[in-house]
Write a protein that binds this DNA or RNA. Structure first.
Lengths: 232, 232
DNA sequence: CGTGAATGTCATCGTTCGGCAACAATAGGG
DNA sequence: CCCTATTGTTGCCGAACGATGACATTCACG
């Protein structure tokens, strides 16, 4: 059965472009110009993934995302947000609403498809309400907080996003470039070394809880979040 | 093999600046002042990425982008558009044409190079390295890890590549030259004896798990990875 | 404004890794 | 049984890589 992708986007040009990309990737696109149409489509069939524009006429994308998370039927459907450049700051809010990933406009068909596949590949790990638990760490998505063995961890915004991404994609190596793409956003320009620094800061905040060895270095390849420790 | 970047831009000043940045980043720039020249260059060699000015004499950049996408030969070549401020609204059209990213003039050399790398990374990017299992050993490609009977094995980068190659091509003899080609890459020049050393190191890391006899010497020919032990 | 937190960048330091050569060991043919 | 080609082993050195601390800048908030 073909994977069905629901595209909620008011600009028809973008919608068509996305639909084209999706169907060329062997998935079945369904169009919706606003939230009403989207709900009608969902009533028809619950899609396998939702591409959701941030700005929509009437209900905003993020409100709709929250609504999807609230409904039993659609709770586990992954959501990818389409945001314009400059709206990136609202990411944290999106994470709270249980959004799985962001793609910043302008984006290429190629990138979008890659993100869709990446998100769909990750079925496991994620709890109901967008909270994640792994290796003795727990992220409470809605509350935007991190706990290590029920102790609250004080953590900065970027470290939070980094940790969130790693915890939702564990046991897998990511290069610095990939981390930049996923956490900083594909269209911002940052040095690759910056990743090192934030990895360092993340480790430092996890250190008091002895969870810093969850963040592992893979020399020549990148970083990995894993429960089984590095064997040196 | 150097990555070749085709620069299609009519203003020679910008072209030179871009070419400078590109070659300083270790890539090989090729110039084209208009679409005709660009096509000639492509006929010569298909570039690894195209930097395309939005406004060109004759055919516009976006038409050229569409043409590149239509042609089988150039379908997968990523394209970055160079646009002037104010043309940003036309982006959607460009995205439909399959453009991978935009850089808005005026841009810095560093930003451009970063974008190029990001796009190229993405294209070759999310390589879904499969997992391999053979003779009690298991390689988790995405995690970049080796397990011997579910125990994590600590292994260096080159040993990892060597093991990965051997495990994906078992029961077959490879000469040192062949191993050099496949693992080191055809463009590097290394002594053949170096293979011996790394075979040794690989055996050493497999030794604690009693898996070192999977790597077998075929005197006069090379090495082989096999589940059935050597008959001495 | 002023202040502090957050973030990106840079320079430096220590470690690891890879390549090589020199030597030891072994096999295989005559 | 010996001799030689081939392979195994080890130590060393330079280059590459990642970690880290310090610094500059920006941003939000009072």
């Amino acid at each position: 059965m073909l994977k069905q992708i629901l595209i909620v986007e008011d600009e028809s040009a973008i919608r068509d472009m996305v639909a084209m990309a999706v169907s060329r990737a062997g998935m079945s696109p369904v169009h919706a110009g606003d939230v009403r149409q989207a709900q009608a489509a969902i009533a028809e069939r619950v899609p396998d993934l939702v591409l959701l524009d941030w700005m929509l006429p009437g209900t905003s994308g993020i409100d709709f995302a929250r609504r999807l998370r609230r409904d039993e039927m659609t709770r586990d459907v992954p959501i990818i947000m389409l945001t314009a450049r400059g709206e990136e700051d609202d990411r944290v809010g999106g994470l709270e609403a249980g959004v799985d990933d962001y793609v910043v406009k302008p984006f290429s068909a190629r990138e979008l498809v890659a993100r869709i596949k990446s998100v769909m590949r990750r079925v496991s790990g994620e709890g109901e309400d967008g909270s994640v638990e792994f290796g003795g760490l727990r992220i409470d998505g809605p509350a935007h907080r991190v706990f290590a063995s029920d102790q609250a961890v004080s953590i900065g915004p970027t470290e939070y996003r980094l940790l969130y991404f790693l915890m939702t994609h564990p046991e897998r190596v990511y290069s610095r470039a990939q981390l930049l793409d996923h956490i900083w956003g594909g269209s911002t320009y940052v040095e690759e070394r910056t990743v090192d620094v934030h990895i360092r800061r993340l480790r430092k905040t996890l250190e008091p809880f002895n969870k810093d060895d969850l963040v592992q270095t893979v020399r020549g390849s990148g970083y990995r979040f894993s429960a089984t420790p590095q064997t040196p």
